[in-house]
């Protein structure tokens, strides 16, 4: 075993401001990039598994920001930018403090909301994107379900996607 099922994240219990004002929605800055858990899981090839959702479908947040939103580790948040919205789990960042910034490791979840704008420099803007973060009750989708729900390449009834059965954690194809 060279991996773990989910990243080890700190659990911050004591806040400097225990009576921090609660917000429904936070205006934040989004950064995406590589992370060692994401890299190990992606290159191992385990992208359909729950493990990949746990390492990529997460937003590393400052504990203070999480207190403001009233979310604890592994609860869902909705992150919205000009380019889309996605449900990810919020976790305490091991690089805190970085109040006002969230980090989502690169992967299908982050890329639903990153900017494809290259400004004629060939490189999309993956970092420094304005976003809003709010608490959500929805569950983080598995990779295959996310790709189907967002890009809808092989679904006829696009309205009915939420009701479709999950594609699960193993590749789905017809054997000969």
């Amino acid at each position: 075993m060279t991996y773990i099922e989910k990243p080890v994240v700190p659990k911050v219990i004591k806040f400097e401001e225990p009576t921090a004002k609660e917000y429904k929605l936070l205006n934040m800055m989004l950064n995406t990039g590589s992370d060692i858990y994401q890299g190990a899981c992606k290159k191992r090839g385990s992208t359909c598994k729950d493990e990949y959702r746990k390492v990529c479908g997460v937003a590393y947040m400052d504990p203070k920001d999480m207190a403001k939103l009233g979310v604890t580790n592994w609860e869902s948040v909705k992150v919205t930018t000009d380019w889309g919205e996605v449900i990810v789990s919020a976790v305490h960042s091991r690089d805190a403090p970085h109040e006002g910034t969230i980090f989502i490791p690169k992967g299908p979840w982050a890329n639903v909301i990153t900017s494809h704008e290259t400004y004629c420099c060939c490189d999309p803007t993956y970092k420094g994107i304005y976003c809003t973060v709010e608490k959500s009750d929805e569950e983080v989708l598995l990779m295959a379900d996310l790709m189907r729900a967002v890009y809808k390449k092989y679904v006829e009834d696009e309205e009915g996607i939420p009701e479709l059965e999950s594609l699960g954690e193993m590749p789905v194809f017809k054997k000969k």
Partner: peptide, 24 residues
């Protein structure tokens, strides 16, 4: 996994051929 959504949206409209070692 690594293109921004705006670019992947066009991949959903055209044929894609993949040569790779893992299902991703």
């Amino acid at each position: 996994a690594h293109y921004p959504g705006g670019a992947v949206k066009h991949l959903a409209e055209i044929p894609v051929i993949q040569v790779d070692i893992h299902w991703g």
